[in-house]
Simulated assay, not measured.
Amino acid sequence: MQNPLVSIVIPFKNTEDYFLECLSSISQQSYLNFEVIAVDDSSTDGSKKIATIIANTDDRFTVLTNQGTGIISALQLAYRKAKGTFITRMDADDVMSSTRLEVMVRSLQKYGTNHIAVGKVKYFSATGVNDGYAVYESWLNSLTADGKNFSEIYKECVIPSPCWMVHKSDFDRCGAFNSEVYPEDYDLAFRFYKNHLKCIPCDQVLHLWRDYSTRTSRTSDHYAENTFLDLKFHYFKEIELNPKKNIVLWGAGKKGKTMAQKLINAAIDFRWICNNTKKIGKHIYEVEMQSVTALKEIENPQLIITVANQEDQKAIKTLLESLHLTSYEDYYFFC
């Protein structure tokens, strides 16, 4: 089929200030064969009314009411109604570029199943985009341009939740939205990775990401730092952990200590190294802190690195490469 149906699922709650712009950007897509399944998650403002007005004038739009509670339940309801060959998600406060669906559909038609169509993103805000989001945007787009998103998945979510598209058959194979794990977008990215889907390179901005003070990613406990670490550690154990290797934790800051506790609680033996001369030789959680030089004596190491400074990361990578260690086989940056 030349122009297969695309199902767009949209959970929404109290986004009346932005929802019309979001839905209008979908209505104005250059690709016409789509369906929108929008699920209201207990809105108390005019969001549902806005969606209903659009649905009454365009039969490609359907508005449902969440029978459960929360974004995952809303996504699951929307997906149960989806009939498309391709599946994508949209957030109710964001904006699609006019060619987003067309670019993604053509990419998937070219590359076939076992692939994810992604696109570059751009943050925008009425009050200006802060430095943290600007850095994340630049990092994410650099990965997307080459389709190398999964090469740094343990650092941060590498698939922007509203800017991907997959074959429905692949989505079902990856478990669709059938997960109660938060943050649900990062969990889905890990499941794409676990099932060996490949990202299709894209050098176009296909999604405009709106930032504002009450956006869910800013306010929800599900996006707290410890939740991200829980998710990373869960998938590291499931996908990467090699019983034939010796686990080494690099870094003794806050994240390093949190990871040490997780390793201890999981009964995983590990060596702990750092560059901080004040900590070397001391015991934290009854584990001796060793110098980085000890790494040269450890056979078959598998490193979890929690050092966040970018310049330090470059130096670490140079050292590990000099020891003939390979990224995503022998070492993983967790931040």
Rank of each mutant, 00 (worst) to 15 (best):
P301G: 12
Q302I: 12
R271V: 12
L5K: 08
A294Y: 11
E180K: 09
T127Q: 08
C163R: 05
Q313G: 12
D203T: 14
S151N: 06
G128E: 00
S125L: 07
H207Y: 15
A315N: 15
T57R: 13
I273N: 08
W164M: 02
Q204N: 08
L320K: 03
N178M: 03
C199L: 05
F270R: 02
R106Q: 10
H196F: 13
Q302W: 12
V118N: 07
E225T: 03
W250I: 07
C274L: 10
G147D: 00
Y123C: 11
T214S: 08
V129I: 09
G112F: 03
D312Y: 13
Y136W: 09
L77N: 02
A78Y: 10
P301E: 06
D93R: 01
F270K: 02
D59L: 15
E299V: 15
Y193I: 00
K257Y: 08
Q302K: 12
K244Q: 11
Y331V: 02
M96G: 09
Y182T: 07
I284K: 11
R215W: 08
T62G: 08
D230W: 05
Y331T: 01
G68W: 06
M1E: 14
L140G: 02
G175E: 05
L241R: 13
V287R: 15
G251D: 00
D131I: 14
A252H: 09
S142N: 04
N178R: 05
A82K: 01
I8P: 00
D91L: 01
S125G: 00
S179E: 03
K13E: 05
D170E: 00
V205G: 04
N66M: 00
K13T: 06
H196L: 03
P162D: 15
S98N: 10
L197W: 02
E297F: 14
M90V: 03
D58S: 08
G253W: 06
L325Q: 09
D230Q: 04
C163M: 12
T88W: 04
S179K: 05
Q109A: 06
H207V: 02
K279R: 15
E225Q: 10
Y235W: 04
Q261E: 11
E152D: 13
K49H: 14
Q290R: 15
Y111T: 14
K48E: 13
K232T: 04
S25W: 01
K282Y: 14
I284F: 13
C274I: 12
D17T: 05
S169Y: 07
C174K: 06
Q2S: 09
L197T: 01
W209G: 10
I200R: 01
D59I: 07
F124H: 08
D170I: 01
L295T: 09
S24M: 13
Y31L: 04
C22G: 09
S47V: 06
T85Q: 04
D93N: 01
I10G: 06
F228T: 03
C199F: 01
N275D: 11
D17Y: 10
Y212D: 08
S213Y: 05
W250F: 12
K254D: 09
S47N: 07
E225H: 14
L77P: 02
K255T: 10
A38I: 02
G70R: 06
K83I: 05
N3C: 07
A267P: 04
I304M: 12
A266Y: 03
G253P: 03
Y193R: 00
V292Y: 12
Q290G: 13
Q2K: 12
